[in-house]
Design a protein around this nucleic acid. Structure first.
Lengths: 243, 243
DNA sequence: CAGTGGTCTAGACCACAAT
DNA sequence: TTGTGGTCTAGACCACTGC
């Protein structure tokens, strides 16, 4: 029995088409992270290719962090490992090396809005939902965030009950809207606190500010979120790996 | 004909041992970036494994960015692509999108020195060579750098003629000392300019400063450089990709 | 125990580069 | 034309998981 590949360039090699087909299934939410995807032998039969070709396709997705192999058990889709890295701006331990308390997140506002020029440029639309949050560490506010997501893909987000959110947004994006954030670019710069931001962060107006602008992309490379986060420049630390 | 694997755990699978052996040859400088390494068939014969196993070993190194395949031509070692990313702190184009002039680099001092506590902690030795540089863009000084490298691996560095340096250090590390930088971690924070730094950067003492601390690691994961770079916080931008 | 991924083989044919 | 990497196959046996 053989299944047709998803719409994909027929000139591509079989493993690439299979990879894209599997990606589409993941993006479509056909599988969940708790259940294994079909076995390699099964996929080989289904798509009428050899197991080796399936392995090469799966290898690619494992390399991208989309799938995860567990020997003897199966291959599973992977909730983006990504989230742990989102707290890179905070010093995660006290000066003495003690781990800090869990970061908290307070939703201040959600509303339909018109995107700023920068957000609209990144997202390709002015029609957005705006989210305002304040993140704290040990009851100290450390990061003030304004987040923009395209209305077209997150319709109804502004009306979700507060209980639907954990401290992290990306799992919510996936579970409620099928949007899987796969990659992001950060840009760190320096600024000064406006009245409003200073008040939220409990610092003085015009105090030095660390500013992180992020654009997040989904599995297909389309931008799905733009955010600007501000924190006190004193004590700020941003870690980054270069390879 | 079969060559022994490099000293490596015999319990590892063949492809992993071959991968490590090839890594060792690269680190030892057995090959240069302009000449292809032995063909897959040749390596298969030499190490008495199948071509598929060689492919898997090479695949790993290609994934790490150490090797590069060129269809029809051969597999080549790759000078670290890395260097282009080292200028991530500067806005590389003017506000209007015009590319900026090439960054310049002025060596101020090289000398044997005792490492600061932070540098010694990162490098695991106090016995270092210290390098001081000033980097400029369009004749404006933008970044003041203090760089520490372990004396044990860079013996004689302080005595090299100035002509031996291009604007980038990592190629020099490799060509003169066989040290291949493969990975680094950056940490961005904000501070204030000391007298000395302010003078170099032509800003005022106590002006806001962007500070980047980097630890660089070689192919075997050993730390080989620690540097602290400072620039005017105004106009500073640090880009980073998250995956 | 059956089923899964992990390793490895020994081929085949194709696409491309260098000569 | 020759030699290289690129794709693909159809098996084999091993290591591990879960029942």
């Amino acid at each position: 029995m053989s299944t047709r590949f998803a719409m994909t360039d027929a000139r591509l090699p079989a493993y690439a088409r299979l990879r894209d087909t599997l990606t589409a299934r993941i993006a479509a939410g056909d599988w969940t992270p708790d259940q294994p995807i079909p076995s390699e032998a099964r996929l080989a039969r289904e798509f009428d290719v050899s197991v080796g070709t399936v392995r090469k396709a799966v290898d690619g997705l494992v390399g991208e962090g989309l799938l995860e192999r567990r020997q003897g058990s199966g291959t599973y889709m992977r909730a983006p490992s990504f989230n742990a890295t989102l707290f890179r701006f905070f010093p995660m331990r006290e000066g003495n090396g003690e781990p800090m308390t869990i970061p908290q997140s307070k939703m201040i506002k959600r509303s339909l809005a018109e995107a700023s020029a920068e957000a609209a440029g990144a997202l390709g639309t002015k029609d957005v939902i705006k989210i305002v949050r304040l993140r704290s560490l040990a009851d100290q506010p450390v990061l003030f965030e304004e987040i923009y997501i395209p209305k077209a893909r997150f319709s109804g987000f502004e009306a979700l009950p507060d209980a639907a959110f954990g401290p992290l947004l990306y799992p919510t994006y996936f579970e409620h809207f099928g949007v899987l954030v796969k990659r992001a670019t950060d840009e760190v710069s320096f600024g000064r606190a406006s009245d409003a931001v200073a008040q939220q962060l409990r610092i003085r107006t015009n105090d030095p500010l660390a500013v992180i602008c992020r654009t997040a992309f989904d599995i297909e490379g389309k931008p799905v979120e733009w955010r600007i986060a501000s924190g006190n420049a004193e004590g700020f630390r941003y870690r980054s790996e270069i390879n």
